[in-house]
């Protein structure tokens, strides 16, 4: 489940360090489900499902559930292996204010990729 993003990111001291300038909420869209991911100084502090129409984030990254499932395979197939490979193929879409995303692009790619299947995982994103 998406909660494991928080556990895995916060357990990765180097990743948190690289994101130390990041304090914001962004929206991750998985199919029809929108999640608001709150970050303070590189640590994920909250992940919650969007429940109000006014709930939003500084920017959003959206793809279908099937596409994220491919992105999160241990070795993803081509076109699904990176958000910036998914964008030109229109598999993923980004919107909003992009400055923070671009200033910390590898960090955001890496925290999302933390959902990638690891040894011992079940396939239950």
């Amino acid at each position: 489940m998406i909660d494991k993003m928080q556990t895995r990111v916060n357990a990765d001291a180097r990743l948190v360090h690289r994101g130390r300038w990041v304090t914001l909420t962004f929206l991750l869209g998985i199919g029809n489900d929108d999640y608001l991911i709150g970050i303070v100084a590189g640590k994920i502090t909250t992940i919650r499902r969007r429940h109000l129409a006014t709930d939003t984030g500084e920017f959003s990254i959206r793809a279908s559930a099937k596409s994220w499932a491919k992105h999160w395979q241990a070795v993803p197939p081509r076109d699904y292996h990176d958000i910036f490979a998914m964008l030109p193929k229109q598999i993923a879409k980004i919107d909003g204010r992009l400055e923070s995303l671009m200033q910390n692009l590898q960090y955001f790619k890496d925290i999302i990729a933390k959902m990638r299947t690891e040894e011992g995982d079940t396939n239950d994103h």
């Binding site: 990176d82 910036f84 490979a85 692009l105 590898q106």
Partner: peptide, 10 residues
């Protein structure tokens, strides 16, 4: 940083 982050997709 942004150059590396862009091309890491490749």
């Amino acid at each position: 940083e942004i150059q590396a982050a862009f091309v890491s997709s490749q």
